[in-house]
Amino acid sequence: MTAPGPRRSTGRRLALSYLVTLWFVVTVAFLLPRLLPGDPVQALLDPDSIDYLYEETLRAQIEEHYGLDRPLLEQYLAYLGRLARGDLGESIFFRERVVDLVAERLPWTLLLAVPSLLLAAGLGSWAGVQAGWRPGSWRDRWLTGGLLVVSNLPAFFIGLVLLLVFGVELDLFPTNGAMERFAEDASLGAVVVDVARHLVLPMAALTLSLVGTYFLLMRNGTVALLGEEFLTVARAKGLGERRIKYGHALPNASLPVFTQFSAEIGLAVTGTIFIETLFAYPGMGLLMFEAVGARDYPLLDGIFVIVALSVLVANAAADLAYRRLDPRVVRT
């Protein structure tokens, strides 16, 4: 991750590797439909599909419309050109532009995923310091054991249990969608409360599925710090235990947590897909699930490119921020 070498070349290498990845993503999204069975027009040609086209001329027209009758290189260049203009094509199922669909769904996903990630990192770090401060104590054992199990359960199972217990049995929170259908004159306050209530269970599930990694990193980071001299100095200065724990140990153990935070952005996407599908939460994850079910290939390709691009940008931003946080990365 942290390539040695002077600052400039490190930065350039980083930029290069992001560019290579970007090219890889875009090319994969182009090649997959053409390499594997499951042609974009297969749904139209498959007699089992509701979209089956009986008319031969119409099928040929569709093939021409999607440019599938032209040479591969020409198709590739046309595809890159469209991407550069921000054109991701049109969804077969929704009959809308992919860009518009994504713009409609992305805010919901961000509303769900960003607070969950922050919450998981915060809670995990806090619990990690608690456990790592006294390694081997009963608190450490229970937290480590419990979170090991929780973080190993699939996100959809955690969500399912929360849904069934708190949504169905106790009927405390809504289990479906992001908000109720409101009359025109509903007050803003009522809408906010409703959106928040819909967010509780999906967010809890996503947070739980992400919290374990942060916990373990922070716990091990804290354990590794225990004998360090700066803690002894802090103690010798007469600082309180709380001050030492949170003011001195926590910041020093949190660098790996930050690295993980950027690596976890990709993982949060995975969790989000499961959680959104389970709670019918109208974000990108549910959209992807719907696209898989409807065999909506242009939509699937478009979402893949957008999601991969977002994760890349987030990783690059975290990389840059990390360089600021830890001057040692740059110095050599």
């Binding site: 997959l32 999601v307 991969a308 890349l312």
Partner: peptide, 19 residues
């Protein structure tokens, strides 16, 4: 590096949808 920075599940869904 490239493979690791691609979000895994969307990639799997994409391949599975075709394959």
């Amino acid at each position: 590096d490239a493979m690791l920075s691609i979000p895994r599940l969307p990639f799997m869904l994409l391949i599975a949808a075709y394959a």
